[in-house]
Design a binder for these strands. Sequence first.
DNA 1: CGGGCCACTGTTAGCGTTAACATCCCGGCG
DNA 2: CGCCGGGATGTTAACGCTAACAGTGGCCCG
Lengths: 347, 347
Amino acid sequence: MQPDTAPRALAMSDVAARAGVSHQTVSRVVNGHPNVAPATRERVEEAIRELGYRPNTAARALVTGSTRTLGFVTVSINQYGPAQTLVGLEQAARAAGYSLSVTVLDEATADEVRQAVDRLVGQGVDAVLAQATYDAAAEALHHVRTTVPLVTVQSGGAVEDPAVGVDQIAGARLATRHLLDLGHRTVHHVTGPPDSKEARDRVIGWQAELREAGAPVPQHLAGDWTPASGYAVGRDLAARVRGGEEITAVFLANDQMALGLLAAFHEEGLDAPRDISVVGFDDLPEAPFFTPPLTTVRQDFAELGRRAVETVLARLRGQELHPEPVPPALLVRSSTGLAPVRTGARA
Amino acid sequence: MQPDTAPRALAMSDVAARAGVSHQTVSRVVNGHPNVAPATRERVEEAIRELGYRPNTAARALVTGSTRTLGFVTVSINQYGPAQTLVGLEQAARAAGYSLSVTVLDEATADEVRQAVDRLVGQGVDAVLAQATYDAAAEALHHVRTTVPLVTVQSGGAVEDPAVGVDQIAGARLATRHLLDLGHRTVHHVTGPPDSKEARDRVIGWQAELREAGAPVPQHLAGDWTPASGYAVGRDLAARVRGGEEITAVFLANDQMALGLLAAFHEEGLDAPRDISVVGFDDLPEAPFFTPPLTTVRQDFAELGRRAVETVLARLRGQELHPEPVPPALLVRSSTGLAPVRTGARA
DNA sequence: CGGGCCACTGTTAGCGTTAACATCCCGGCG
DNA sequence: CGCCGGGATGTTAACGCTAACAGTGGCCCG
């Protein structure tokens, strides 16, 4: 019977012994330093392979001061956008040799944000990426004093802060122009929650495009990202249409609200694109299967992740990078069509 | 001018010096050991507060051998289920004082899974949780020999393995029985991809319920989770209905496919619940806003996360836990209704 | 032919923490 | 009144790694 002692994970010294070199030489091989004789390197690598050795990250982190881990704090990952941001980020981080430690906030309050960043820093991440779509969170972020770089993803805020995001304004302009090009006299807009920077940017883009086209700027309609709010606005709008108002085009700040609005209109016997043209934002995987397939604006999350990681790694090297916003793209499907011929409607 | 040396993060010894004790006493306070005089403890705690000291996790991990980090490998986080699983997991892990290191697979191949687990282990996680809905991934998982506990979340597989999941079979039975109770003679089923254990379980539950009710078991219809596949099946089915076949109830393995099917039927002038009753699975946030609002089955992801973390922590303590599957719940909305009166249809 | 440089390798000293052991002092009890 | 036990604290030694420095040859060049 073997004493069966705890099989203490192997260390560099074990590899060193096996290869007949010092542990430092093993370290050099592991870290790809030059000035190791090819024969030695080969011998060490073989020993590593045979033993199945893997360097201990804790020990390495202790001496180098870097864990090669990025922290990510996010909200409402059950929304498509934030979830995709996570995916894009993780891939980019992995490609850069970093791993991602994720924290998802229960609520987007200043306090929670602070705590989350704190926890991450305490945990030893090299930098933190934060997705703070809501003002309270974004605000909190600006007051966080960390020992590590912090970059903000997909959430505007104070200009001095390093932030990377998709160009929401451009996206909204794209959507609005598309509708205008189709001959609609103006475009109505259903917003996201007012405390969301992204939502406000979409409002800005929509207004700007309208003004430049010399089109009237109707009162925006308040939504909150949920299909329910889209539905509510939809009922309202449908009633107004029935009352004879000329409302022919709606741009909604996300696809989910578009879904709700479509449902409400449908209930009233009003359908897109015949009676109304509808554009969403996000390009949900479901969007092509709405009734009708939804014209929408797509954000490139993989690219977003790449730029975010790039920016944060630059800061780690002491450089200050201010990446351009990622351009979005318009996807035309069947929920938009030519404006109906004006009939001078009056019920 | 101060030399302005790198401000080396403070260590226990700094706190110790300030409080006039040894660093070991600080360690004892930090770790809540007994046998520290209240007065001393107070003094140390104050020093910690004043200095803003935080223990270095790398050093701690080095000596204790535990990073208090759980690894999570997942696929397709852009699907609602997996995304919610992540959320549930993170919250449960956090509540238990662990942080979550996430990896999202680009593809669910055996190789990728192995690599991901490997990466996580190499990174020093205390245990890994894996969400392997697809067989290739699940299969790979069973052959992974790790030095750390591995528990599988929301993915069946070999029985001997510790796994935690929602009871898919029960969920499918719930959906099927609901339709049967409504008077439908039988229920058709649109499946998920055949290499998904969850999808197969839903088929099993559906068949079982049908058989027990003495209802005919129609050929299942192949889908792949996407709205597109639901749409395709929907077109087929609608044609068959138009051809006079008695098809009045469909249970789909997820909500997205239900959306597609609903769209296809609608195109054919067939609407739920009048012409057809439809049940989905997942309860997407959008589901209440489908046309019509979708009856579906909800899984409790928070509970799932809790049990998964519980199980993995138990294994860390050397216990073997085999948690019960989490029970799902049926949500009745408006896409289901009483079976139409039989008319002996023949176009 | 000798000095010096360079490529290669080894030795030593931490990094900040916890564990194990040593020490001190006080009070209770024989 | 001295000894013993135990609570409170300090001291020392790892944990596994990298960085800095110290050797050791061989080769080139003067």
